[in-house]
Design a protein around this nucleic acid. Sequence first.
DNA 1: GTGTACTGTCTTGACATCGAGATACTTTGG
DNA 2: CCAAAGTATCTCGATGTCAAGACAGTACAC
Lengths: 176, 176
Amino acid sequence: MHDADQPTPRRTTHSEDEVDRLIASWNTERPDLDVAPLHVLSRVSRLARHLDRARRAAFAEHNLEPWEFDVLTALRRSGSPYELSPGALLRATLVTSGTMTNRIDRLTAAGLVRRRPDPEDRRGVLVSLTERGCRQVDAAFADLLRRERQILAGLGPDDRETLANLLRTLLTPFDA
Amino acid sequence: MHDADQPTPRRTTHSEDEVDRLIASWNTERPDLDVAPLHVLSRVSRLARHLDRARRAAFAEHNLEPWEFDVLTALRRSGSPYELSPGALLRATLVTSGTMTNRIDRLTAAGLVRRRPDPEDRRGVLVSLTERGCRQVDAAFADLLRRERQILAGLGPDDRETLANLLRTLLTPFDA
DNA sequence: GTGTACTGTCTTGACATCGAGATACTTTGG
DNA sequence: CCAAAGTATCTCGATGTCAAGACAGTACAC
């Protein structure tokens, strides 16, 4: 449709990144397509991938897998007595019930959570953090925040706020 | 450290999202921690998750799995004759060699790619797109771009550019 | 009350991924 | 020309996930 404004040198000198190269190859192969959305969304995906790696590294220091951290933080954030049903946990972590059963089994075996029957609903179960689970998730979370601060080091406070607000705008439609 | 500036009404009215609620629970449970990095990075992760869902939906319309699309686009972007080695493909898609072998097997079975021995290196193999593979990836990609435009609809052109540039700044250290 | 629909959890089977190692071939250096 | 190191691909076993369905218990309407 509009070929002319694709290559305009509109933005101030930014060093080229992988996504710019990706987009350049698309522009060569499919000049008919407007691939501008990739400028934002491919970067979101790639950054998320790197974040996953950083998370994995942070947790490994505390002998936790990312999935373990996800479950433990959900419990931790729920506040004392750090106890939730498997159903609540799977809604918090967006996994299926089969996966959650498996996770709780392994976390129980590792001594990080405990299972007990729900006294108010005989179908139900309650999962709670053990002392060790609580200590470990707190340590891992502090470590994670340190690394995330590193990743954000290239941005000033105003840029961070701008970025957070723009991302929230994109995210809001999904939260509904 | 600084309790006072967390609840300041500094940003102009934005509706609260899931991440704001997440951060609020952390502030309740661990008021000693500065969880500000989550404002940016949790949103990046969550948005990436939603993007994955959108991708999956777009590809399903064309009978493609996300992993199939990843391999096919790498070939498509490489330009005519749409042929790359398994090694080049695994570098492009960031999976292990075992995974790539498996993927190529299945794509071959589906008639979307072809394998042939590399005439210049008898260890090697070359993988190329079939007619059908090319048509299918083109259709799926066009569909994906439509959906990505939808996701970005809430942002004006200037905001998109700002967002892309901020994300690039965060991404650059990783590309090295 | 009793049947029907619903909810919460667990079980099972299929599947894609990874990591480590095997195999075949090529390159390099003496 | 040969040996050693390097490269390209594939094989295999273990793992974590999901989807579908089984099972037990609850809630509501009649």
